[in-house]
Design a protein around this nucleic acid. Sequence first.
DNA 1: GGAGACGTTGAATCAATGA
DNA 2: ATCATTGATTCAACGTCTC
Lengths: 378, 378
Amino acid sequence: MTRKTKAAAKAASDAAAADLRTNVIYGGDCVQVMNSLPEKSVDVIFADPPYNLQLGGDLTRPDNSRVDGVDDAWDKFDSFAEYDRFTRDWLAAARRVLKDNGTLWVIGSYHNIFRVGAALQDMGFWVLNDIVWNKTNPMPNFRGTRFTNAHETMIWCSKSPDAKYTFNYEAMKSLNEGTQMRSDWSLPLCTGGERLKGDDGQKLHPTQKPESLLYRVLLSSTNPGDVVLDPFFGTGTTGAAAKRLGRQYIGIEQDPAYIAAAQRRIAAVEEVKDPSVLLTPSKRSEPRVPFGTVVERGLLQPGAVLTDASGRFSAKVRADGTIMSAEVRGSIHQVGAAVQGAPACNGWTFWHIQHGDTLVPIDMLRQKVRAEVNHTVQ
Amino acid sequence: MTRKTKAAAKAASDAAAADLRTNVIYGGDCVQVMNSLPEKSVDVIFADPPYNLQLGGDLTRPDNSRVDGVDDAWDKFDSFAEYDRFTRDWLAAARRVLKDNGTLWVIGSYHNIFRVGAALQDMGFWVLNDIVWNKTNPMPNFRGTRFTNAHETMIWCSKSPDAKYTFNYEAMKSLNEGTQMRSDWSLPLCTGGERLKGDDGQKLHPTQKPESLLYRVLLSSTNPGDVVLDPFFGTGTTGAAAKRLGRQYIGIEQDPAYIAAAQRRIAAVEEVKDPSVLLTPSKRSEPRVPFGTVVERGLLQPGAVLTDASGRFSAKVRADGTIMSAEVRGSIHQVGAAVQGAPACNGWTFWHIQHGDTLVPIDMLRQKVRAEVNHTVQ
DNA sequence: GGAGACGTTGAATCAATGA
DNA sequence: ATCATTGATTCAACGTCTC
């Protein structure tokens, strides 16, 4: 881009900005509202669209209580094709209203994120990162039929490969105690006092996102004063985080009840001077190393034999990371306790393996695993 | 499925299996090779396809012209379309060769995984989980322009929503030291001695996956003896993990150098001697025992009194294996549910009998019956 | 007042078998 | 194919209540 065109673009952008009302919530359909705004006028868009969950019947917990799932009308689509149409419609409107150097975030789950990602790429958006939000406290899988669905995915993209987007590298790095912020974020769900409740004490919105997630999103990809637009505003997490961080917001939401709740919520927010106080640092605690990891990484083979230091007791390693003595199967700790007739036992120091001429505790293997893991900040 | 169709399906599957050579590596194009194999003959497919066109080199047009990495929007669409065609081709062949109750794993990054995921869903595959492999030691982002790309994504899916797929829930739970395995896995990259090197000391394959990743994939979704097919075999990580875990493999790879390396590598892997270490017992796989059998075998006398753990509810055992509370007669489950006013109840764990000083669940009696049965059978 | 028991809850595509 | 029956299954964070 030459200096002349750059200046022209800046002028156009300023003109657009002059027509832009900020710190407002629009009621109505997000495509119509976005199309009514000046083009190329917002710095960042954060979108939390319907996920297109396809839930069967009721789901009950082991105690027979019912899981309060998402059964709202706005998440009902007849087919993938219809969902794709919906997606491409709002993405086109978003692309129009986004500045050329702006970026777009979309959050989703495996139900919809592949459709969204493919649409983004087809429409010329340029993926910068996919970010995984690992939930520290997800809902378990109650039936034992799959892996616990413990994460959601965000796609962060610019309008084109050569866009000059904002990424506050140093802010992210210092947030992460001096090493680069990674693409996997570990944050808790929105619960407790942060979760908005209705008069009935029930959750007001089925999918309220934690503010900590939006803090990190906005701190990484916007500058103070920037305008962030959220086309699926819900109860206004994006607006609350924006205000707290000294950014401007534009919300679009269809449900008047959500709009009212968001307005009350944002009104109560106070701007902060030092945003670092808001951010949940990544967890840095000593990583837990299940014994299974030692087997999985090939430091012990299934079938290997463990003994105690005296050689009196022995047990065989199994593929799933349990061990088995003559009679008992269980964790290294359980079997260690059982063979000794003790109430408890630290299997890491009790069990040994042959190493050259001597027996060494299997804790040595755990240290090897930790040595690898310690490269990480998580 | 009626017994007749089930038997027919089993017979067809066995016939297919008879024609299936396993523990082999086929040279050539994976679509052609897969189409030459019997349909519905493999239990699991693990695929690590080329990630993308933007990296260049990996993908060529059908006429062998190279897709040019131009940043023109039209060309980009062109190359995405190319990649989609390639993806749908190999997925169709994979779907054909996969058993109806088999599952498919695909690994990728944001460059390709959205295309793959959308294609899977369009083709009728049913996503069971998306799994995030968080790398403990990723390559940093050298230019400080984005978040460190610290993960890859796997999609795990069945052929249809109602497929009876294999998921070794208990094995995964054991591997994770007693709590459910989550959808985010933290594992190191393939480095050090595990990483295959060429004569020049350089890495032999650009994207060799760690065996620990395949270990967990195969332990979770296959049974010992199952056949796992890998259409992009590379240096044979899938084969090595399969052999280690007592599974069979079929590899397909175009590059003769990789095939040779994979063969050497797999030959060096030692199989587990004692197959019992490969299995994790689960309650679901234990034989059913009707409550009537407990009475029939004299472990409980007709007229015996059952109570719940707190002693609030009681019921009397009848000769026909039903029980009767003050008002309700029925199975242990039905009466347990009725007295609690609950929608359902597991009578085996709800009802107790006096045993010495304490109350023990009648499940103990079921275990006695099972123990007897096992002695008889073996 | 504090410790501990107990109850509640979160974007969830959540069973298998035999009549 | 449909329906009834059996019986397998949960983790981390909060909030409330009891002792």
